[in-house]
């Protein structure tokens, strides 16, 4: 097999478990998840409320520690990393997008996008240049000096997307990125993520209850009660949709 045929996995999990102890009860938020995400893929995590989507994101994003199992990002086992290496991973390898945007409130759009580049050691001039480029790319070239409160929800999420891309991450993790947005704004955010995925080859993993995500996903992972129920390729999904339309 030639090297070019070998699949590169940006993300792999093996027997990933996360249990929460709630008094005498144990909540199995994740209960043995095996998942492989190929470099450049756009993957959607679907599932009802409480199925474990956010928990999965926190685990693979190095934001919380699993109870058991392994997580590899770019073939590095992140459970073996110390605090310093984890911070480095969050800084360089992962771009986070949250339902609640999570911009730093006192910083302008530009400063928010520059912040992760400070930690990455990018020099001030380059930082500024790159942040402006990214904000232009997400359509906010005329909002550089606006603070989060002076931006609409959709615009805040665009800033968050630009910030997530700041250090050229291997993977973007988006937990319900459209959860706080109206239908049209949500769709435009999804389209933007999709375009960036194609354009920059950045792997995207997005959680949602939102079926319009299906159009842009290469694969859809259905979670239920902390387990993967099934994984569908887009072809299968669109084929099914097509058949339904045909019938």
């Amino acid at each position: 097999m030639s090297i070019s045929e070998k699949l590169i996995y940006t993300l792999e999990t093996e027997g990933l478990k996360k249990y929460y102890k709630m008094g005498p009860e144990i909540v199995k938020a994740l209960d043995g998840v095996d998942l492989r995400v190929v470099k450049g893929e756009y993957i959607s995590i679907m599932g009802p409320s409480g199925s474990g989507k956010t928990t999965l994101f926190n685990m693979v994003g190095g934001l919380d520690k699993p109870t058991a199992g392994k997580i590899y990002i770019d073939e590095v086992d992140i459970s073996k990393l110390d605090a310093y290496e984890l911070a480095w991973l969050r800084c360089r390898k992962i771009g986070y997008i949250f339902q609640t945007f999570n911009l730093i409130p006192v910083m302008t759009a530009l400063e928010n996008v520059m912040l992760p580049m400070i930690f990455a050691g990018v020099d001030a001039e380059e930082r500024r240049k790159r942040a402006i480029e990214l904000l232009n790319r997400v359509g906010l070239g005329d909002r550089l000096e606006h603070k989060p409160v002076e931006l609409s929800g959709g615009q805040q999420q665009r800033v968050a997307i630009a910030r997530a891309l700041a250090n050229n991450p291997a993977i973007i993790l988006a937990d319900e990125p459209t959860g706080n947005l109206d239908l049209d704004t949500g769709r435009s955010i999804i389209m933007l993520l999709h375009e960036l995925n194609r354009e920059k080859g950045v792997t995207v993993m997005a959680a949602t209850h939102d079926l319009k995500m299906i159009d842009v996903s290469d694969r859809i992972v259905w979670l239920r009660d902390g387990k993967i129920q099934r994984i569908e390729k887009r072809k299968e999904v669109s084929l099914r949709v097509y058949r339904i339309e045909e019938a």
Partner: peptide, 16 residues
């Protein structure tokens, strides 16, 4: 506290 969480997501270390 939430802001601190966000900064840690962006690469901030405990001592930062």
């Amino acid at each position: 506290t939430r802001e601190i969480g966000t900064m840690k997501c962006l690469g901030a270390l405990y001592r930062h």
